[in-house]
Design a protein around this nucleic acid. Sequence first.
DNA 1: GTCTATAACGTGATAGAC
DNA 2: GTCTATCACGTTATAGAC
Lengths: 206, 206
Amino acid sequence: MDSFKNTADSSTEEKIKAAARTVFHKKGFAASRTRDIAEEAGINLALLNYYFRSKEKLFVLVMIETLTEFFGSVSVIINNPETTFEEKIEQFAAGYIDLIFREPDIPLFIMSEIRNNPEQLLQKVDIRNTVFNSVFMQQFTEAMQQGKIKDQNFLHFMMNFVGLIVFPFIGKPLLKAISGLTEEQFNMLIEERKKLIPVWIKAMMN
Amino acid sequence: MDSFKNTADSSTEEKIKAAARTVFHKKGFAASRTRDIAEEAGINLALLNYYFRSKEKLFVLVMIETLTEFFGSVSVIINNPETTFEEKIEQFAAGYIDLIFREPDIPLFIMSEIRNNPEQLLQKVDIRNTVFNSVFMQQFTEAMQQGKIKDQNFLHFMMNFVGLIVFPFIGKPLLKAISGLTEEQFNMLIEERKKLIPVWIKAMMN
DNA sequence: GTCTATAACGTGATAGAC
DNA sequence: GTCTATCACGTTATAGAC
């Protein structure tokens, strides 16, 4: 059993996968070249195919990991039975903004690639039950029945909520061009939104 | 002066440009092939290069037209001196949703391509002055000074407003996968938002 | 496992006949 | 102006030495 020689993290395989993440996230599948990924990983092009067989197989792997990470981290917050509806709103907003801060290319990446290949990519990760049947949705329904928030469609609510969080990252290049904001100013603006979004969302619900 | 033989609309040149719009909007620059565009236009590949010299030149042309159309139509609403701030909010929401309804691929297309090439693409269309120095922004500032709305950052306001309008179209593939919505149900939801977004936005401002 | 060299293929672009 | 045929090139993928 000499199976610990190339286990996980710093192995060549992981180096390539990490490089692929970076490149795919930034440029999308079609515009990414395997040469770029190999270079980013500091290895030879042939090695990439040795480990992953093809560009597409590598891409699907990255996509699954990205989706799992992205929706998995929500799932924890959204299905915590210990926190109230309002606490979830605050944790969701702050947690998600932090997550996207670390990898700001993810939202646009996911949206673009899913558009090109909806069924094939989404059936690999069960997103549906992460959101529906969540504790969060139950608490939303309860709050409505108890008259704590006004009658409204959960889908509208989620679109608004996620949109407020994610849209600035998707529109960032445009926003910077229009406003002349520096990177730091943009980051400060986003940081402010952690506190502001819960306030706005509550205002919209009443 | 026999200059009216191939003027504008139904000429071959226009057919190619229209096809290029469709294909580029749907797949982006990198994933679009000139062969696809030629086929969509019902002409031969060689003709595309005869009229437009290269894929990139054709793309830039399409991009400029798209940006001009997209931001030009806002400009009219946003700079109308005859309407109030509240009227502009309603017209902006309804008008923009109608526009995107007709060409739902545009938002994601613009965001993706601008990310890949911010400076080069944006300097061709002066978006900045469309939004800043607009009558809309002046009215926003006035309303704030008069205490009609609470103190807040215009950029936050615009991100929220545009996000509420545009995000559902960007997130559409994901939303449909998560919710199981049909195309018609999705359209109905969006139609509702024409009325709802102004209500929400006003609630957020107070 | 890792490399160099090269094959196989797809795509943008052009030559030249009509 | 429009087509067919073909070139030229970049990119993915593999063969084979080490």
